[in-house]
Design a binder for these strands. Sequence first.
RNA 1: GGCGACGUGGCCAAGUGGUUAAGGCGGGGGUCUGCAAAACCCCUAUCGUCGGUUCGAUUCCGACCGUCGCCUCCA
Length: 484
Amino acid sequence: MTEQFPIYLHNTLGRRVEEFQPQNPDEVLVYTCGPTVYSYQHIGNFRAFLFADTLRRVLEYNGYRVRHVRNITDVGHLTNETLGTGVDKMEAAARRENLTPREIADHFTEIFHRDQALLNILEPTAEPRATEYIPQMISLTERLIGRGYGYCVKGDVYYDVDKFPSYGMLSGNTVEDLIAGARVEVGEGKRSPADFALWKAAAPDKLMRYESPWGMGVPGWHLECSAMALDLLGETLDIHTGGEDHVFPHHEDEIAQSEGATGKRFARYWLHNAFLQLSGAEKMSKSVGNILTVGDLAERGIHPLSYRYFTYQAHYRTPQNFTWEALEAAQTALYRIYDQVADLLQSSEPAGLTESGAAVRNAFREAINNDLALPEAVAVLNTMLSNSTLPPEDKLSLLDDFDRVLALDLLAVGRGLIVAGPAEREILDRRAQARAERDWALSDELRSKLAAGGLDVKDTAQGQRWTRSDVLPRVQAPQTGAGH
RNA sequence: GGCGACGUGGCCAAGUGGUUAAGGCGGGGGUCUGCAAAACCCCUAUCGUCGGUUCGAUUCCGACCGUCGCCUCCA
């Protein structure tokens, strides 16, 4: 167990799979771009957080300690369309609900935490809020100005992209192409159209604004992650994760800011997940309103962990198609696994591994260490379960072991499925007796009675086996197409 | 216009330059069982289109078509 196995990860920087080597052999420093809490996190957002969580679990499975920082963005950032009004999304939500931005943030942060727990996503080591990092963001901006990377124009501070020659290294963009691109607006007073804001002046009617050396304003769009990462993880991270939409400009700008300030490499491995797609439809987006939350899934009878399992069916770097049919199929598959665990637990307990069990474990580890090949890892699990030559003790040990990464509560749910109360036990005994006497009528009657109480009984060569039918949610609505 | 990704069976999808193209769901057949359930077994694909490289490509290259992401807050 002390033996180290190589882990391979796809680095967006360079766009290829590399062997992962942490700076410090004991502890891995990971930063994940967290949620913006002006609304619900939808299941597409959660694909990213599940990916980051799985990465962390894979690292821990391999014996690393992980220091994991994931921010909460509770500062609304202005967009082009809202620039004129001075009302960002946080503020818009606050005004709509007649609450303060802080109350909005707290509300949706709470829901996020609840959903995260339902999905078995581990809490990060630290979860800083942007509003608590204003001083650090201001000092980072000052530092950048001091080193010649930032310049102030009428209360705004911009990053001078021309001063950072490797700008574009992550996304493959070049400053020339960006300037030539139709969508880059020339901001007032910007030296280059590609420059981005570190600090924006804010009008007095803005609910959230902060004092700074450049007047009242708000931090720039990408500053918080740099400030938090530098503060909580140091100048160089091992791994930075996020959705692929963040590659440009968010992460490109984080690199420019952080490396401009420190002169050191900001992150050694950049990992990005592809999007969940609503087959054919546009992406799930809060502004479009076509979102699905963990709560929406629950209403439909989908267990949160079924969604977690669903995400394992596609590799994190491949766009995954969302359909209700596929999600329900995933739930069926997961429930069958739970049922098999329940059966196994009625005849044995996890124990040490035989040689063939160890071989299966190695196959699993090889899969997860190969750039988080969860589809393959799940295939290993399924093949293992149907392997009739593998001892049940091995199967249970392996399920327990795999679950450190899969986080599907395999054994816990299995144990919950075989709980039978005293009254049920008594009926089971009577039924066993009836069966011994070949009294099929009574046997069937008692089986119906148990089923009505939520206990499904079946008869095997080893005697009765049962699973509860009333502990896992069942799909409610009839199948329809994707989306709402 | 620039940058990037994806297109594999009814559905979700993995994967490889050449023995039988994972796994799951669904469908069909079977074994087992007093019945039932579960489980297990078998069947259900030539990999978007057109070219090229190669002894050989689904896997490499090019073009095209389609879908998606980013270039504006966004997983």
